[in-house]
């Protein structure tokens, strides 16, 4: 071992993960949990979009990474939603419609996942989904936050309208959402829920990074309640994914999820405190850069010739 290796890595503290069926250094697991937890606390995101690619990078089979991360997100969403509930920032009615769509979408997503895995194309679909969605969301966020930063330097700027009416408001099955101050068709949140649920199941994320902008820009919900409502529905969608993956693919590694969330819980507390020191648009700008970095890394991996075009997987 190299002389400058940190002391804790030289200790033989490996843990055998029973479902992933690999042995991993405990320092790496806690480091991942704590580091991603810190960032998720800092930016107020779930962190699944960072954790899942990192787990795969450290050798966890993609199927296990996705299913296990769903299990871990259940915990972080529960702990996050409680704070928002205390402040009354959860629209339970809207959340329930979203999660009804989410349960359908994520159930279909798990089936699709199993099919793609059997075809040997799951890695590709996971990576492509990341590149596309992180690229789009990261790009939009960067644009929005840089505009906000520029605007804040120019006093007397105008504020945009809360939301505009368009054809989406002509859909049937209209419902009143008091907490969100909206009177819109239930089909819209159902469809959004289903789409995000599908992505959550395939990408091993909670889907907050798509759900939150969709709630603000497509549904026109007030920004104060989107995070709490998004977390509320993520609990159920990721719980559904955890259950279905346990039954269908048997890829939820309870040991890994438990150790990750231990680190994540502590990291998130420090992250939240650090986040209070930065301004909203600065935070969003930094988050956008991070999202784009993950997107570029995965996109680069897909475009570059791999060092070995052959790979093997033991089938049991």
């Amino acid at each position: 071992m190299a002389p400058n290796t940190p002391v804790f890595l030289t200790l033989k503290m490996y843990i055998y993960l029973p479902i992933a069926e690999i042995s991993m250094h405990i320092g790496i697991i806690f480091g991942l949990g704590g580091g991603v937890g810190f960032l998720s606390g800092l930016f107020g995101v779930g962190g699944g979009f960072l954790m899942t690619p990192l787990l795969i990078f450290f050798g966890i089979p993609p199927a296990v990474a996705v299913a296990t991360e769903a299990n871990q997100i259940v915990a972080s969403s529960v702990s996050g939603v409680l704070a928002h509930m205390r402040r009354g920032n959860v629209d339970f009615k809207m959340g329930s419609i979203l999660l009804a769509g989410g349960v359908v979408g994520s159930s279909f997503g798990v089936l699709l996942f199993k099919y793609l895995r059997d075809m040997g194309q799951i890695d590709l679909v996971i990576k492509l989904s990341y590149v596309v969605f992180l690229g789009v969301i990261g790009g939009l966020m960067l644009l929005e936050s840089s505009r906000a930063i520029l605007r804040s330097r120019r006093p007397g700027a105008t504020r945009r309208k809360l939301h505009q009416h368009n054809w989406l408001h002509g859909l049937p099955l209209k419902m009143r959402f008091r907490r969100s101050k909206l009177y819109i068709s239930a089909l819209l949140p159902l469809a959004i829920g289903a789409f995000v649920g599908l992505l959550a199941a395939i990408m091993g994320v909670g889907g907050g990074f798509i759900m939150v902008p969709a709630m603000i820009y497509l549904l026109g919900m007030p920004t104060s309640i989107v995070v709490g409502t998004s977390l509320f529905q993520i609990i159920f969608v990721t719980a559904n994914v955890t259950l279905l993956q346990s039954v269908q693919t048997k890829t939820v590694d309870f040991m890994l999820a438990g150790l990750l969330l231990f680190g994540a819980v502590i990291g998130a507390q420090f992250g939240t405190r650090a986040g209070a020191l930065l301004r909203g648009e600065q935070l969003r700008g930094l988050l956008a850069l991070m999202v784009l970095a993950v997107c570029l890394k995965l996109g680069f991996d897909l475009a570059m010739q791999p060092s070995d075009v052959f790979s093997v997987e033991l089938l049991k």
Partner: peptide, 12 residues
């Protein structure tokens, strides 16, 4: 699966 979900909810 149920146990994993219950554990996560409790931990959170």
């Amino acid at each position: 699966g149920l146990f994993a979900v219950a554990f996560a909810v409790a931990a959170g």
